[in-house]
């Protein structure tokens, strides 16, 4: 039953896409994807010679097909139907091929639900960025560390930037590199004499940050660096090991 219903869905979807391709409701890129999956489903893996360099459209189509490699035909059919459902959730409910404007909007599940159901909402992109509105007052060295830009960090330090300068939370460039897991920047900052035990306004060191953010590589690098004090406690009385995921034994303070 499953196979025959997939065939039917695929046939219906190809008809829909065929009609929709003329009304602009699908982009060229989308049509190319449909083309590739159609060929894969109906012919099999691409065995056609690659069109000449000057046949731009031909090459784009060939590529869309060839990109699917050895994908089985039934999987290509399923992906074809899924892509259409993703782009036009109620395509099957509307009259075939009329594109926008005639769906019933009662798809019975799928994205955002049909009628009679809740919504799968998640955090909108802007939600947590409100504090970030306005110009970024973070010092350039900290920004470079945040971005993992070793060349910029190197250049700023060579140019005389203070490796110990602080951001708004009292954090240093080393905190940012640890938080984001940029190990090369961590190493570079340490090489330039950044204070490995510097604490932010809450008493958190770069080690705390690496542990909190679960940046294992950065945490290991810091824990093995000379001069590190793993027994330092935050304002909440926690050591890096206290805030780390289970099993990060390398953060245990050896000197108690």
């Amino acid at each position: 039953m499953e196979d025959s219903s997939l065939e039917e869905a695929f046939d219906a979807a190809t008809q829909y896409v065929g009609a929709a391709s003329t009304n602009g409701s699908l982009s060229n890129d989308q049509l190319l994807q449909f083309y590739g999956m159609y060929k894969q489903a109906t012919v099999g893996p691409c065995d056609a010679p690659k069109p000449s360099f000057f046949d731009r459209k031909g090459r784009a189509k060939w590529q869309a097909w060839a990109d699917l490699g050895q994908l089985p035909g039934s999987e290509a059919q399923q992906r074809y139907v899924d892509l259409l459902t993703q782009l036009i959730p109620d395509w099957a409910a509307g009259s075939s091929g009329s594109g926008s404007g005639s769906g019933s909007g009662s798809g019975g599940g799928g994205k955002r639900g049909g009628a009679g159901g809740p919504v799968q909402s998640r955090m909108a992109e802007a939600a947590e960025d409100e504090q970030a509105a306005g110009p970024d007052a973070t010092p350039p060295l900290l920004q470079a560390a945040r971005a993992g830009d070793t060349a910029a960090v190197e250049a700023l330090l060579q140019g005389g930037s203070d490796a110990g300068q602080r951001g708004s939370e009292g954090e240093t460039a080393l905190h940012w590199a640890a938080d984001r897991g940029h190990e090369a920047v961590v190493a570079l900052l340490l090489k330039h004499g950044a204070d490995i035990n510097a604490a932010d306004n809450d008493g958190l060191t770069a080690c705390h940050y690496a542990a909190l953010a679960e940046q294992r590589g950065a945490a290991q690098l810091l824990a093995a660096a000379p001069g590190v004090q793993l027994g330092l406690r935050s304002a909440d009385g926690e050591t890096p090991a206290d805030v780390a995921p289970p099993g990060w034994d390398f953060l245990q303070a050896s000197d108690g």
């Binding site: 219906a12 099957a92 009662s106 599940g109």
Partner: peptide
């Protein structure tokens, strides 16, 4: 309201 994905058509 839920319809099996393969039967949405």
């Amino acid at each position: 309201l839920c319809v099996h994905k393969k039967l949405r058509h």
